[in-house]
Amino acid sequence: MEFLIASAIGVMTAAGIYLVLRLRTFPVILGISLLTYAVNVFLFTSGRVIPGAPPVLRDNVTTYTDPLPQALVLTAIVISFGMTAVVVMMGLGAFLGSDDDHVDDQPDTPQDKPEGSA
């Protein structure tokens, strides 16, 4: 089971990095989202993985998983939504403003950027 979790983290990280290295905003945002999943799961597993022992106190139960990474990851998920939204907004604004959704500055080429245009 540990192997499965670790390999899932690895696959999501690799896919995330690959997409982050793309040249257009949308795949980069998808890549960042994948990296977010990977990081969140990794942080979560730092509390060890124990099925069937949620950290909700019950009488006569002594085994609980580590609640602290869960609390940290919970806020991380919500914050990452906020940040994704901001990044999407910035990418969208850039695209609407310049009709270009490249991540990097494009070298000015005379045919598609006439002199004097911003």
Binding site: S7, F42, R48, V49
Partner: peptide, 19 residues
């Protein structure tokens, strides 16, 4: 792809070791 695979392997190794 090479960069991504390296990153993925590294995070896999780290996670697997750590769990």
């Amino acid at each position: 792809v090479a960069v991504a695979v390296a990153g993925g392997l590294a995070s896999f190794g780290l996670a697997y070791y750590y769990i």
